[in-house]
Design a protein around this nucleic acid. Structure first.
Length: 316
DNA sequence: GACAACCACAGGATTACATCA
DNA sequence: TGTGATGTAATCCTGTGGTTG
């Protein structure tokens, strides 16, 4: 079961970009990434290989956080929820401590415990909401259904939220502490199971839905950033190959000229080695090497695409 | 075992708000 | 102070996989 989930995650996180050059190598093994290798451009080349950032922790962290199930093993989680939620208050998340939260007033109509927070209506508003889109969505926006707005300390009340024409959607800004904890959690595991979600929500005084949304957006940002990194990487690959191609063409021209000028000397030279450029690993290989099967790639070590590591740049 | 209905959750696209230069 | 740019929380929609009857 977990394999299925992971396979799906691989597919989804593996950048369905159609960037097939060397990306597939890295994306095919997100759970257990191959060791970083420098890109070995042609042995005779003097061009520096494109820089390659290290891989993020979460990339290889799938399934490690709550080891009883993968992040999306819902069936198991659903069965385990009552007991799990009873014991979910941060026990398995050592980093969830001492969070100074921008909390709504204590009297606010929030369901306190994480088990209570996992009520059906809030657990997956999307699935049900989407099928009821029109009215229900509008109702949600105006705070009728979930009261999903969690104002910051001193912020507006629910009354204020729904007051402005009913269609306003107040936007909570997470505090630095909250964002830091979420970020830390994301590094550990880029998806959440209900236990984790509830624990985080409880600890941060957010709604599980908010934690869920944050993770969704965070995954989207990571993927976007990764796409940018990939584009940059491919651009550099292209430049490198173009330059290499120019150089080889110059070399060919020089050799031809030499053949015309001194045909006798040229005849005594050893036969030229046939060089072939591997399109995926950017190594040059002789015809012999190319014919030989290699253990790790067509002609040797396989380069790993750069992977985005840091969080998105923030203005401050 | 095959099937349909349902549920939960993921990603992608988009909107709307908050903040900053 | 007004404004455009940017970041991001939140929403909507759709697809997928698991469970259940």
């Amino acid at each position: 079961m977990e394999m299925t989930v992971n396979a799906r995650d691989q597919e989804q996180h593996g950048l369905g970009l159609g960037l097939s050059l060397s990306l597939s190598i890295a994306t095919a093994h997100p759970v257990e990434p191959p060791p970083q290798r420098a890109i070995s451009v042609a042995p005779i080349s003097s061009h520096p290989a494109p820089p390659m950032p290290p891989q993020p922790q979460w990339w290889s962290g799938a399934g490690l956080f709550f080891s009883h199930s993968s992040g999306t093993d819902r069936s198991l989680e659903r069965k385990q929820q009552p007991a799990a939620l009873a014991a979910c208050h941060g026990h398995e998340m050592p980093f969830l401590r001492g969070i100074d939260v921008n909390r709504a007033p204590a009297g606010e109509a929030r369901r306190g415990s994480c088990s209570e927070d996992e009520e059906p209506a809030a657990s997956s508003p999307n699935s049900t909401l989407s099928s009821l889109s029109g009215k229900r969505a509008a109702a949600t926006r105006s705070g009728e259904l979930e009261g999903d707005h969690t104002p910051r300390a001193g912020g507006g009340s629910d009354d204020e939220d729904s007051g402005a024409g009913g269609g306003s959607r107040k936007k909570l800004r997470l505090s630095k502490d909250q964002a830091a904890v979420l970020e830390e959690s994301f590094k550990e595991h880029n998806t959440l199971n209900p236990k984790q979600k509830a624990a985080l929500a409880k600890q941060l005084n957010l709604k599980p839905r908010q934690v869920e949304v944050w993770f969704q957006n965070r995954r989207a940002r990571t993927k976007l950033k990764q796409t940018e990194v990939d584009c940059e990487f491919l651009k550099r690959c292209c430049e490198t190959l173009t330059e290499e191609n120019r150089r080889l063409q110059r070399e060919v021209a020089e050799l031809r000229a030499l053949k015309l000028i001194a045909p006798h000397q040229y005849a005594r030279m050893p036969p030229p080695t046939t060089l072939t450029m591997c399109p995926s690993c950017e190594r040059l290989a002789t015809a012999d090497e190319a014919a030989r099967p290699a253990p790790t790639g067509p002609w040797g070590p396989v380069p790993v695409r750069p992977v985005f590591v840091d969080g998105p740049a923030r203005r401050s």
